[in-house]
Simulated scan of single mutants.
Amino acid sequence: MSATEENLTILAAVDSFPLASTLFTPTKTPSSTPPPPSIQINSATGVPRAFYVSFARYLATTHSCPVLLYDYRGIGDSLTGSTPEHARALPLASIQKEWATYDQPAITMFLKDRFPDRAVVIVGHSVGAHIAPLNPAKDSVSRYLFVAPNNAHWRFHPDLKGAISTYLFPAIVAVGTRVGRSPQGLFRANAIGLCEDIPLGVARDWSYWTRFREYCTVEPHIKEVYDRFLADGDNTPNAEEHRTLAIGFTDDAFCGSREAYDAWLRLMPAAKVPLWYLDPKAELGEFGVEAVAHMGFFRKAMKEALWEPLVPFLVDGRFGERVGRGVQGEFRVKAKL
């Protein structure tokens, strides 16, 4: 099966900031009832949407899922607004406000409007997972796959250098706020090998949250939303249809152990998110995969090892055999922070 690829501009909620997006649409409508869901991919911090193209094409061409990629404001092709007000406000854009509650819901509602007969599933990568519970349009979302959704507290780094760098991150951001901004007024994250340049507000959120084990829920309004996230649903191990699943890897350079993942999942106690935690060398070697880390899930080489086993969950909320084995007994939401 083939799919069309259409570059779009979608206006963010509230302030209509133009978001560069790419929609992958299957050329044939499947006969299944209900049809496969449409999928929204929330990127990691400072990662352009082009990074996710292989995964999007796979879902659209092989499993008939429309997939929408987008660049948050200040990232990739979403670098300039359409008004002077947009340009002035861009450096101050934050994770918790503009990315989570302006940009993200606009993508959700676009999919809901374009494909009203299909459920919406969010695949959130890293910060793309962290913002998912804050989505004002989350009532239109049926399921969530969280990829590498670690708590970024500095103590969870696997090595001293990473821990020290993360601990000093707020100071680095403070200096970068005053000197060395990009022409758009962004924080030069690329200059320190972190990611693409990002809005100063994003850098401030990220660096501030890393100081706390509570991570983003150190903000009272975020904690309130996280506490209620999926409180009305059944996501227990015996549920016939699961609403959430997280996946993480032992070789993630941002995580010294699975505790970094558990520490984020515990922030949403009502959701009871199961974690499929894998050792790539031990569990994926038969597929020719020895490393995944924080970014590798979306590489084309992961098709057989990781993408295919997750299709049943993405399409209808079922855990296939490998995923089901991997998440057995993996609910650790009662542990203390």
Score class of each variant (00 low, 15 high):
173 V>H: 09
75 I>R: 03
236 T>C: 07
208 Y>M: 15
334 K>E: 15
186 L>Y: 00
293 A>V: 04
22 T>L: 11
26 P>K: 07
18 P>H: 08
44 A>N: 11
36 P>D: 02
147 V>Q: 13
59 L>E: 00
201 G>E: 01
237 P>F: 06
29 T>N: 14
207 S>G: 14
137 A>M: 10
50 A>G: 03
203 A>I: 10
110 F>W: 02
19 L>C: 03
61 T>I: 03
321 E>N: 01
94 S>R: 15
91 P>G: 04
282 A>G: 13
40 Q>L: 11
191 A>P: 07
234 D>S: 10
94 S>F: 03
140 S>M: 06
250 T>C: 10
43 S>E: 04
48 P>I: 01
104 Q>L: 13
28 K>I: 06
294 H>F: 09
83 T>W: 05
128 G>K: 04
305 A>T: 14
27 T>W: 02
41 I>M: 01
271 A>Y: 09
160 L>F: 04
203 A>L: 07
283 E>R: 10
31 S>K: 15
295 M>S: 10
143 R>C: 02
307 W>T: 00
330 E>F: 00
223 K>E: 13
4 T>C: 09
234 D>K: 09
72 Y>H: 08
321 E>P: 00
83 T>M: 11
234 D>T: 05
16 S>K: 10
134 L>V: 07
148 A>L: 02
100 A>C: 07
21 S>L: 03
